[in-house]
Design a protein around this nucleic acid. Structure first.
Length: 840
RNA sequence: GGGCGAUUAGCUCAGUUGGUUAGAGCGUCUGCCUUACAAGCAGAAGGUCCACGGUUCGAGCCCGUGAUCGCCCACCA
């Protein structure tokens, strides 16, 4: 006998046990030295160490885990490499916030102690995500977990930096960059988000020198920056101003005069057609200043407070406070011509939403064009395939318009830039190992205080985690990786950088396929993000509905290309599905003898029924069809289709019909019924396993409890679709039976020939009951009459349409023969129905 | 300013070479404690598939125009 199962499925009492066992048994550890074609690998998009798991992670991990478990069951030597990202700026902010609560600060502690504090915090909470993933059943190879600041990965970072520097693809220079006054660091273009705001456009009057009473009107959105003006530009083709070109105008409140220059930057139709040039505080003006060889005045410090000799009486004021004061002073001086509303997009720090201040500073950059070109090429050549495909266009478009990448950050947490400066002889040394002294003059060296953009190290992730630059067994066996599954939000940040750096340093693609999943949104369709703090702990819904139900929900809603608004109703529905599976097992275990269970080694790779019973032939035909459908769906990452297929098959075919039809055979002692039932159930569990690992593991183990040691279902072969097992005769017979039972009609004779007497006896007994249950409530005769009329009209319309269609020669010529036959059959059916309606 | 996506049942969404009477989950209504499952079973109601035009024997699907919503990219002061 099988052990009796509880009356309903309680995931809470089962899942933690399995989660722990899987990790302890190292069930998902990949092997080295397998034949090349056997290996299949995927690296996780490393979550931030700061974070805890949110539903976006869970969606991503669920989709990954489904593919990974499926590939493993197909016999691949699978590596899913887990790990975390040090997430420079995010982590530093978290730790600084914690320090601030204790009244401490990074500056007061000093760099060394601060770094120690971050490491301590990382050790204490950095494993949280891993623990959560383990609890959720992610089938990672935990023995290969990596962290971006690991010694090996740091070594890879230094190697890459030095090589790019030597190739001239990394340079250092003084440019205007995006600066966050709150984070006090440079950020890349990608880390600036543009938010629409209702700004103002100020028209200011610049007195023309030598022309008393004459003014040049200039439009600006940032009046406080006039103190750093070095010129006013007008368009050379603008007739209004040609006379002024070369003359001097006075900068209001500044007590300086600047030249009027001709430059295309000024567009005649915007504002007044005259634009102030402020190279120290605007990227466009910076470029214009370089064209005209103008000086760069700076009036804001790293906190965006007014500073320096040109700030005058406004020194010390915040930029926005200064704006108010300056506008008031301009008005008092009669130099403010107008203020108009001006909707515009202002750049904000992605992390803290502070308005970005363009700032001139010395930073490190990657010369991106050569890398981008090669990275675009591999995608154009189809060496990397995107799903959904339109991401390819987006990717290529970005690659075509890419700017150099600012990689230095004025932070303390991260990979420190491997560059040293000699103050004595002004030499710069870039090296993998810390040099003892200046190679030129022997003087003492000072390392660059900055660290690298987090994405610089993440960009190496697919190969740095596998041992690069060493030629390791992992690198040989698992690179390039097979697939990347990640979100659209980091397509440019991460995917693009991995392709650029991967192609450059390994002469191969980092992954052959990229699946871009949808975004999980909350009930209000808001994006869930680390910075917004609206993340939902997946462990809570998991606790409520069970991990398998949440996983199934996520998979079922993961149609490629559209966002997911997560609904708990849906989870409840799939929790019921898990319970359905549980109860099917409960019935099977109560009704069948354990001796009939297939031995685990006796893997039903080829699902074939014992005997010739029509019902058995049907369910095994369906199992094979479902296996084939799942294979198609998963190959194309159509997770929702796979989930729907499983749901419908298990509930409405396996339970509603197969188990029901088997009940009577069991009662009558049909010797083939139980063994076939057990094998079919085994096959169904395997099909379900990639999506629902916990319940299938529990039930599969129970199914095979008599023949220990049963291996985990995770290592059991996935049913291989066998086209020969598809049995159209059995499928047609069951379809007829279903129709007959549903309509409470007589059995088709053809089916009766194939059904055993006992089944027939059951079915005949069952039919009247169905007929009773299905009876419509006694309807109002008038209503009934109306319904008939409506149906009659519908039928007439359809018949007319069909006749027209079938009379069409082009249709007969062009449509497939089966389509024509189906249409003819349908017409006959419709006519028959109409005849019965007309009859009474 | 460019580019992309969406619009299908009360709600959330599927619908991939154009071809039976357009589906699912939840919700609603009716009837069932039926010895695997009331987290269940048997039924029912509910849709001008955003609008208009076009292609086709045939359009939810293809083409065009428009409307509404959303997203991404972008140095317009």
């Amino acid at each position: 006998m099988f052990t009796e199962l509880a009356k309903s499925y309680a995931p809470q009492s089962i899942e933690p046990r399995w989660a722990e066992a899987w990790v302890e048994q190292h069930l998902y550890q990949a092997k080295n030295g397998q034949p090349g074609g056997q290996n299949w690998s995927l690296v996780i998009p490393p979550p931030n160490v700061t974070g805890s798991l949110h539903l976006g992670h869970m969606l991503e991990h669920t989709l990954i885990d489904i593919v990974v478990r499926w590939q493993r069951m197909r016999g691949k030597n699978v590596l899913w490499l887990p790990g975390t990202d040090h997430a420079g700026i995010a982590t530093q902010m978290v730790v600084e916030r914690m320090l601030a609560e204790k009244g401490e600060s990074r500056q007061a502690m000093g760099r060394e102690r601060f770094e120690e504090a971050v490491w301590a915090w990382k050790r204490q909470s950095g494993d949280r995500i891993a623990e959560q993933m383990k609890r959720l059943g992610a089938s990672c190879d935990w023995s290969r977990a990596r962290f971006t600041l690991d010694e090996g990965l740091s070594r890879a970072v230094r190697t890459v930096f030095v090589r790019l520097y030597e190739e001239g693809l990394i340079y250092r220079g003084r440019y205007i960059v995006n600066w966050c006054p709150r984070c006090q660091t440079a950020v890349s273009d990608l880390e600036v988000v543009h938010e629409p705001v209702n700004g103002k456009l100020y028209r200011l009057r610049y007195p023309v020198v030598g022309g008393p009473g004459r003014f040049l009107e200039v439009a600006t959105t940032r009046p406080e920056t006039i103190l750093a003006d070095v010129a006013v530009a007008v368009n050379p083709a603008d007739p209004r101003y040609t006379a002024l070109i070369g003359q001097q105008v006075e900068v209001p409140l500044a007590g300086r005069t600047v030249p009027v220059i001709a430059d295309e930057i000024a567009q005649p139709e915007f504002g007044t057609g005259a634009v102030k040039i402020t190279p120290g505080h605007d990227p466009n003006d910076f470029a214009a200043g370089q064209r005209h060889n103008l000086p760069q005045l700076v009036i804001l410090d790293e906190s965006a407070k007014m500073t320096g000799p040109h700030a005058g009486v406004y020194a010390g004021l915040d930029r926005f406070a200064a704006r108010k004061r300056i506008v008031a002073d301009l008005e008092a001086a009669g130099l403010l011509a107008a203020i108009t509303d001006h909707p515009m997009a202002v750049g904000q720090c992605q992390r803290c939403r502070t308005v970005i201040e363009p700032r001139i500073s010395t930073q490190w950059f990657v010369k991106i064009e050569p890398l981008a070109k090669a990275a675009a090429q591999v995608v154009e050549d189809g060496k990397i395939r995107f799903t959904p495909e339109n991401n390819k266009t987006i990717y290529l478009g970005w690659m075509a318009n890419i700017h150099d990448w600012c990689i230095s950050r004025q932070l303390w947490w991260g990979h420190r830039i491997p560059a040293w400066y000699c103050d004595a002889c002004a030499k710069t040394i870039v090296a993998e190992q810390t040099p003892a002294a200046c190679a030129g003059c022997g003087g003492p060296l000072r390392q660059d205080p900055d660290v690298l953009d987090t994405w610089f190290s993440s960009g190496l992730w697919p190969f740095s985690t596998l041992g690069w630059p060493e030629q390791t067994a992992d690198r040989r066996d698992f690179y390039p990786t097979s697939l990347l599954i990640t979100g659209f939000d980091i397509l440019f940040f991460w995917v693009a950088r991995m392709i650029m750096l991967g192609v450059h340093f390994t002469q191969d693609v980092p992954f052959r396929e990229v699946y871009i999943h949808a975004l999980v949104r909350d009930a209000e369709r808001q994006k869930m993000s680390k910075t917004k703090g609206n993340v939902i702990d997946p462990l809570l819904v998991t606790e409520k509905y069970g991990t398998d139900a949440v996983r199934f929900t996520l998979a079922a809603m993961a149609a490629p290309g559209t966002d997911i608004a997560l609904s708990e109703d849906r989870m409840a529905g799939y929790a019921a599905f898990a319970n359905k599976i549980w109860n099917a097992a409960r019935f099977i275990f109560l009704s069948a003898n354990q001796a009939d269970a297939p031995a685990p080694a006796d893997s039903p790779v080829h699902l074939r029924p014992r005997g010739r019973h029509m019902v058995d032939r049907w369910i095994f035909s369906r199992l094979n069809a479902v296996a084939a459908q799942l294979q198609r769906s998963l190959e194309e990452y159509r997770f929702h289709e796979a989930a729907d297929t499983l749901y419908h098959f298990f509930w409405h075919e396996f339970c509603d019909w197969y188990i029901e039809l088997t009940k009577l055979r069991l009662q009558a002692g049909d010797p083939e019924a139980a063994p076939n039932l057990l094998v079919a159930f085994d096959g169904a569990l395997r099909l379900l396993h990639p999506v629902m690992p916990f319940i299938t593991e529990e039930l599969w183990t129970a199914l095979h409890a008599a023949a220990p040691p049963a291996v985990s279902i995770a290592l059991a072969p996935f049913p291989q679709p066998d086209p020969a097992a598809v049995d159209p005769e059995a499928e047609a017979a069951l379809a007829a039976l279903q129709a007959a039972v549903t309509e409470s009609r007589q059995f088709p004779a053809r089916l009766e020939a194939h059904l055993s007497d006992t089944t027939l006896a059951w079915a005949h007994a069952y039919l009247p009951r169905l007929a009773k249950l299905g009876q419509k409530p006694a309807a109002d005769p008038a209503q009934e009459q109306a319904r008939r009329e409506k149906r009659r009209a519908e039928l007439a319309a359809q018949i007319h349409k069909k006749r027209q269609l079938l009379a069409n020669d082009r249709f007969r010529a062009q449509a497939a023969a089966t389509v024509v036959a189906a249409e003819e059959a349908k017409l006959a059916e419709l006519e028959a129905e109409l005849a019965t309606l007309a009859g009474d």
